[in-house]
């Protein structure tokens, strides 16, 4: 059983009279515990695919199964609840709520999933230690550096124990050295916790970590390749 199954997905955007086809009949299957990298140029449709996987957006046609739930059959509130429980998100920037402290940002993710319990708080503490920022738990996000904010975002994405992590260029905003460290932490934590991760990037640097690489070439063709060990 594949963890994520995508069948005959089509997605276009309408702007005025012009129709812009971004995903054309895409088929994919990703296994549990795998790290998949979406590689492609700007505007090639990486974010669009991630939004479909998380249920933020819906395809024009086709089916998406996640852990045997067909999310394309769910209506909006149900999709939101599904996302809340099963998906952890890391974006390029603006991951944290600026008026909540680091701790409160993690606690919000716990509260949303009914995990705001002593065990949940313990897990938040554990993850903050893992990303090396437990001593900054009472700071507001805007006093943290970009790299530190992304490390907090990683902890936040994992704190409620979702099955899948979706990362949209999580290091796109960072310099190389900081990016390396953030990726190292992310890769380590995701693998240690046995999570399935899909990460979008436009640089080839990270492909070495991936179990599977999906390359967006041209407008709509998708090449899938298995990592060779």
């Amino acid at each position: 059983m594949h963890y994520i199954e995508i069948k005959n997905i089509n997605k276009s955007f309408h702007e005025g009279d012009t129709v812009h086809k971004v995903l054309d009949d895409v088929n994919l299957h990703l296994n549990e515990g795998e790290l998949t990298i979406l590689l492609g140029r700007r505007g090639s449709g990486k974010s669009t695919l991630l939004n479909l996987l998380s249920g933020i957006d819906i395809p024009d046609s086709g089916q998406i199964f996640m852990n045997s739930t067909e999310i394309t059959l769910l209506r909006e509130p149900a999709r939101t609840i599904f996302r809340r429980k099963n998906v952890g998100f890391i974006f390029q920037f603006f991951n944290l709520i600026p008026t909540l402290t680091v701790n409160e940002n993690l606690h919000l993710a716990l509260e949303l999933t009914d995990n705001f319990t002593p065990e949940g708080k313990e897990r938040a503490k554990f993850l903050l230690n893992e990303v090396g920022l437990y001593d900054r738990r009472n700071s507001y996000p805007d006093v943290l550096s970009g790299g530190e904010q992304q490390r907090i975002a990683i902890a936040r994405a994992l704190v409620h124990n979702p099955g899948i992590i979706l990362a949209d260029e999580p290091t796109g905003n960072l310099d190389f050295k900081t990016a390396d460290k953030v990726i190292e932490i992310l890769d380590d934590l995701v693998k240690k916790n046995g999570k399935t991760m899909v990460m979008a990037t436009h640089s080839r640097e990270l492909t070495g970590l991936a179990d599977r690489i999906i390359e967006f070439k041209g407008k709509s063709i998708i090449v899938s390749s298995q990592r060779q060990n």
């Binding site: 998380s54 933020i56 909006e76 509130p77 939101t80 609840i81 996302r83 809340r84 429980k85 998906v87 998100f89 974006f91 603006f94 991951n95 709520i97 600026p98 919000l108 993710a109 949303l112 999933t113």
Partner: peptide, 12 residues
């Protein structure tokens, strides 16, 4: 901020 909350699973 609202977009972030939506992504985190807060309903409309």
């Amino acid at each position: 901020l609202l977009a972030l909350l939506r992504a985190a699973g807060v309903t409309q």
